[in-house]
Structure formats: structure tokens, C-alpha cells
Design a protein around this nucleic acid. Structure first.
Length: 473
DNA sequence: GTAACGTTGGA
DNA sequence: CCAACGTTA
């Protein structure tokens, strides 16, 4: 250890102190640790809402580090160039980071690692973003899982290492390298919506995430199995944005879920299974990176999708004015809160890809722009699942009916009342807030009458079924 | 090779 | 029941 050359901790989607293998490994070198975040092309390319939410996360995490005598160094540019600059400026001898699994990150990290090693720098990547590294889960045939249930059975009884405690001493160096000012990065610049409307819905940082996890596993997980299906109530863990940015680790969730399970909470296993869905998405994107950009099943390539994201129908879908209440409520919920209930995601995805026969990439791109819990693997898998082009996908003839879904899962109308203002004498505050959030250019007003559907549900369903059948699916 | 199975449904 | 085939063991 060392001649006291500092160690760089390259942070990306691991903005936490507890259960952070890369941070612990960096500290174990015995030298000062310099945490750094790099705004590179990967981060620059984020959609409006996820980029804004990342900015909130960085602002918060920088404060957390400062409160412990450390700092978050912010730099902009090509990751390798920046890391080399920092090595030169600080005399660092090592760089540690937590692995990511999407193709762009893998390509970048691979190049960074080999270049740094050539420079004589100790470059090390670590686990932490997933429960199970994708190359450690195999079918008996030696392949990767393409169906969820067998994967679940293969991992459910595995041991997951107990979460690491947050280090007490973050080993600040005597001198810090220069840092950009976060405000200069203008992370919210593309939020041409009322960000102040969205702000109260963001659950920023490790402490808030841990509090939520503790509350959820204590008070709510027991009834998760049934309540998770109701978009009008607070029945889910609501930890997706924190998981996406690594403000909480999946292992912390896994162990909290297991604890609840052992204490007899009925819904705990169902929730743990959802964590494994996240794993499944990452294993798929690792083994088949094209899942993020192309039909996972190539036979869908010649299906006559509408690929135009600016048609009147698709614009109405994006703006939450299709005239289908479940769809519109969900799209407005996403626009205001940055998140959408899981069941609602299935409904809007089914409606877009089936009733509107629009390519899942159009929906994926809009979610890329709007979700503060945006996660490349889950988003890609979810869209392909809904469209029918993905692994373990819903069959083509499974077309969600947004009306019967509403009767089943929003029987009291809580969800619709929360997000639709038109037609109510006293609309809810949340429903009204949508009109404060949207850009003026959309030309919508809460006093408009609720739109009539441009497309009858039965008509859309028939059209889609016929198109599928014609192609002899 | 065989056979069972498949997150979330609709009518 | 629909209608169906790839995945898995």
C-alpha cells in the first residue's frame, strides 16, 4: 500500500456510501480517496428528466460527501481523458469503479481499463449494481436465461453477500483537484416542463431511500402482492429511481425483503421477485445488447409498425389526451412525477404498440425523456415485453383493454381522479398540476373538455389482431 | 429425443 | 377457450 498515492473513485450509478464495494476497495488501498463524477457522452445523452434527476442526485451526494470531510470532484469530457488528467494532477495510482452492463458503458469501461493499465495505473471494476453478475447465472445447457421463471428458480436460494456498512473515514486527500461547478452543467436545461412541479416527487439520496425501504418493508410489503397492482394507491416500494442511480443497492433491498419474509410478511417474496426482474433485464442486455435498439425476435422486423413519433395519435399519447382515461392518467402521472406505476406502464405500452400499432422504440424514446427512474435495461425489456418482440414476451393476442383494466385495478377511480382534471367540478390538485408542468406549446388547459377518443378501443384491437394474423404469427 | 411451461389477459 | 412456440429440463 502505498506510497500514499491517492486513489480515484469514479462514480457513475452508485451514488451511495453504504454497500459500495468499489468505495470500500478504494479505501482499502490505504491512501486518500478522490471521488469523481464525469459528465461524458453517456451522461450527456440522457433524456431531459433523467438528466435533471441525476443533477439532483449529484448535488445531494456532493453535500453528503462534504459533510464527511470529502468532496465530489466534477469534470466534463471524455472519461479516459478526464481520468488521465486527474491522474496527472493528483498523482493517483489507482482508479476504482462499479460495473455497468449496457453496451455503451461496457465499451467505454473496457477501453478505459486497458488504457489506464497501459499507463501503469491500477484500474479495477467492482460489482454492486446487481445481485448476480450476469456471467454467473447459466442454464444447465450453459446459456443465459431467456425466460424469467427458470432464472428465478435458479437464483432464488442463492446467498447474496450481506451489505457492506458505510465507511466511517472517507480519507480525504490533503489537497483537492479542481472541480466544475454543478450549476454550470445545467442538468435541468432540457426540462422544458415545470421542474418545480416535479421536484416534490423526487426521493433524492441514500438516506431518503433507506428510510423508504425501512418503511416499506415494515408497513407495506405484507400487502404488496395485491396492492402493487393498484395505481391509485401507494402500494409499491417506490425505490426505482434510487435503484437506477445507485442511491440504494439491490443487495440492501434483497436482504430487507428476506428479513420481512422471515418475519412472515406475505408479499415479501413477490417483491423480491421484482428485484430479480431487474436482474433479468440486466442479464438480457448484457448477453443480447441489441435488446435496447432492435427487435429481440427478428421475425418482428417486417411488422408494419408506425415508426413516426410525431403523428397526431402518438402526440396525443405522449400528451395524455388519447381520450382513454387509464392511458391519459398514466402519461400525465409520468410527466409530473417522473415515474409511472408498473401496471400503468403495461397499459400505455400495450395501447401504443397494439392499438396504435406504433413501434416500441417510439414509446421507449419518450420514456427515456420523461422517467426520473430511467433504467436502460428495464426500459428496453419492458417495452419489448409489451410489444411482443422480446424474450418471455406477452403473446400477440394479449391486448390489454384499458377499460376493463381500469375497472379491475382502479375500481374507486382514485388513479383517474388523481391525474385527469377535465370533467370534474373539483379536480384534484395533482390533476391540475399537470397543466402547470406541460409546455405552453402544447396548448392544453384544465378547462378544456376531456378529449373524445380518436380511435375506438375495439377498432384498434381488431386492427392489431388482423395485422398480426396476416403475418401468420 | 420428449414434454411441460410460460408475470401481469380478453371475451 | 383463445392459439401457440420457444425455452427449459
Amino acid at each position: 500500500m502505498s506510497d500514499n498515492k491517492p486513489t480515484l473513485l469514479w462514480l457513475r450509478r452508485d451514488l451511495r456510501l453504504s454497500d459500495h464495494p468499489a468505495l470500500c476497495a478504494a479505501l482499502d488501498q490505504g491512501a486518500p480517496v478522490i471521488p469523481v463524477f464525469i459528465l461524458d457522452d453517456c451522461a450527456e445523452a440522457l433524456g431531459a428528466a433523467p438528466k435533471w434527476r441525476l443533477g439532483l442526485a449529484l448535488e445531494h451526494f456532493a453535500q453528503v460527501l462534504e459533510a464527511r470531510g470529502s468532496r465530489l470532484i466534477l469534470r466534463r469530457g471524455d472519461a479516459l481523458d478526464v481520468l488521465r488528467d486527474l491522474v496527472r494532477e493528483t498523482g493517483a495510482g489507482a482508479v476504482h469503479w462499479s460495473r455497468l452492463y449496457d453496451p455503451a458503458a461496457i465499451a467505454r469501461d473496457k477501453a478505459v481499463k486497458s488504457a489506464l493499465k497501459e499507463d501503469g495505473i491500477d484500474a479495477q471494476s467492482h460489482a454492486g449494481h446487481l445481485l448476480f453478475e450476469p456471467w454467473t447465472v447459466e442454464t444447465k445447457e450453459g446459456g443465459y436465461y431467456k425466460v424469467y421463471s427458470p432464472m428465478w428458480r435458479a437464483v432464488k436460494d442463492r446467498d447474496v453477500a450481506a451489505p457492506l456498512p458505510a465507511p466511517k473515514d472517507l480519507r480525504a486527500p490533503e489537497a483537492w483537484p479542481a472541480s466544475d461547478d454543478l450549476a454550470d452543467w445545467r442538468m435541468g436545461a432540457a426540462m422544458n416542463r415545470g421542474a418545480e412541479v416535479c421536484l416534490p416527487y423526487q426521493q433524492v439520496g441514500e438516506e431518503a431511500a433507506q428510510e423508504r425501504l425501512a418503511w416499506f418493508t415494515r408497513e407495506s410489503i405484507d400487502r404488496y402482492k395485491t396492492r402493487r397492482d393498484l395505481p391509485g394507491i401507494d402500494g409499491t416500494s417506490n425505490l426505482s429511481e434510487n435503484l437506477a442511480l445507485g442511491e440504494i443497492s439491490p443487495a440492501q433491498c434483497w436482504h430487507a425483503g428476506l428479513r420481512a419474509l422471515h418475519e412472515g410478511a406475505g408479499g415479501a417474496e413477490t417483491w423480491i421477485k421484482e428485484l430479480v426482474w431487474r436482474e433479468f433485464a440486466y442479464h438480457l442486455i448484457y448477453h443480447t445488447p441489441q435488446i435496447a435498439t432492435r427487435n429481440w425476435r427478428e421475425k418482428w422486423d417486417d411488422f408494419p409498425w408506425n415508426e413516426d413519433g410525431s403523428t397526431a395519435e402518438v402526440t396525443a399519447w405522449k400528451q395524455g389526451r388519447t381520450g382513454v382515461p387509464f392511458v391519459d392518467a398514466a402519461m400525465r402521472e409520468m410527466y409530473v412525477t417522473g415515474r409511472m406505476h408498473n401496471r400503468a406502464r403495461m397499459i400505455v405500452a400495450s395501447y401504443l404498440t397494439k392499438h396504435l400499432m406504433t413501434h416500441w422504440r417510439v414509446g421507449q424514446a419518450w420514456f427515456d425523456d420523461c422517467l426520473t427512474d430511467w433504467d436502460i435495461a428495464s426500459n428496453a425489456m419492458g417495452w419489448q415485453w409489451a410489444a411482443g418482440s422480446g424474450p418471455d414476451a406477452s403473446p400477440y393476442f394479449r391486448i390489454f383493454n384499458p377499460e376493463t383494466q381500469l375497472e379491475k385495478f382502479d375500481p374507486d377511480g382514485n388513479f383517474v381522479r388523481a391525474w385527469i382534471a377535465e370533467g370534474y367540478d373539483t379536480p384534484s390538485d395533482t390533476a391540475l398540476s399537470y397543466f402547470d408542468a406541460i409546455p405552453r406549446s402544447w396548448g392544453l388547459s384544465a378547462t378544456d373538455s376531456y378529449p373524445r377518443p380518436a380511435l375506438e378501443l375495439s377498432e384498434g384491437r381488431e386492427r392489431a389482431l388482423n395485422a398480426y394474423q396476416e403475418r401468420s404469427f
